[in-house]
Simulated assay, not measured.
Amino acid sequence: MILCVIPGISLALPCRPHACSVRSLSESNEVGFKIPGADWKTRRETRRCEVFDLHKELVPYREAFSWQESTVRRRQALVEKGEDFSDSLIILQHPPVYTLGTKSSEKNLKFDIKDAPYDIYRTKRGGEVTYHGPGQLVMYPIMNLGYHKMCSHLYMRALEEVVIQALSITFSIEVSRREGLTGVWFGDQKLAAIGIRVASKWVTFQGLALNVTTDLTPFEYIVPCGIPDHQVGSIQRILENSKSSGETIDAGQLIEDACKSLLREFSEVFQLDLS
């Protein structure tokens, strides 16, 4: 077991580039992403996004965090010079690991931290403890929120929208948000967790994790996202429960389909040209 503290990027912003009132998504289609039942009007030209597609790889958490951190520094320098013309997206899987957010409580760990089943990292994202592991697709967008005219609240709602649209269109799974909570839910099962960090120059990193074929057993040893009395689900389990007895699901194909769908909807929601 390794308990590591991941250094954060300080959040020292004298003012917000765009005011953000807490409104319903149906009132917020001007920020540039699809809202079910609302007219979606393009407000700007499509922006480029460089994609690092490692969805077939198990990338250690520390390595992925360092990669994000270096990309954030590069992007901040470009913003400073007025030359930040693209966003970045990393998509991958992690080996088994628990991560704790900035204000996470160790009370949400159901084991002795000195004898943890997997490595533990305390990082600088928001949110509580969660688990990452094989079969879970993790997306780390590194976005310029100033360009997208989003505050952190609307940005998280947009990330939720990516997952909602992907699951609905590709898998016919109708999921939803829960008032007062962050993430995407199928009934009382949480399928996607979201935790972000906004650095200086309004460059954001960290992102979302979607359980596709994930072994859900490691979630039993924590209080996922600090929300007791709720379950964690996966796309595979939902589809298996809906199929006739004896039907099998190709886990590898499920990962491929989920990845393609997430990338497509990410492009649509944020109006980005993925390259």
Rank of each mutant, 00 (worst) to 15 (best):
Y155F: 12
K110R: 15
S200C: 10
E220K: 12
G252A: 04
K190Y: 13
I90Y: 15
L92D: 07
S70G: 10
S21D: 15
C49Q: 07
L13Y: 09
F65I: 13
L100C: 05
K56R: 09
S21R: 14
H132F: 09
L3H: 07
L13T: 11
G8Q: 08
F219W: 12
S152G: 09
W202D: 10
V175H: 06
T102F: 10
A116H: 08
R197C: 05
S105V: 02
Y121P: 04
P224L: 11
P60M: 00
Q206I: 00
E63F: 07
W40L: 02
E268V: 07
G183P: 14
I194F: 05
E179P: 03
G133W: 15
C49G: 05
E265M: 02
F270L: 06
A209T: 00
H18D: 13
L254P: 11
Y147D: 05
I9Q: 11
H94K: 02
A116D: 08
K114M: 12
A193E: 13
G8I: 06
P117K: 08
F205W: 15
I222K: 10
K110V: 03
R157S: 12
I194A: 15
G207D: 13
D257I: 00
G183I: 00
S261T: 02
V138R: 06
A158V: 01
P134L: 03
T248Q: 11
L137M: 02
A251D: 15
R75D: 02
D257E: 15
V175E: 09
K243I: 00
D188I: 00
V198M: 14
V163F: 12
Q206P: 05
S261E: 12
M156Q: 11
G82R: 04
P141V: 06
R47K: 13
C20A: 11
S234E: 12
L137W: 12
V198P: 09
K190F: 11
E27H: 04
D53M: 05
H18E: 15
D215L: 09
N211A: 08
V5H: 13
P117R: 12
I222P: 04
F171S: 05
G127F: 08
F111S: 07
L167Q: 03
S261C: 13
D87Q: 05
T71N: 08
E106D: 07
P117G: 10
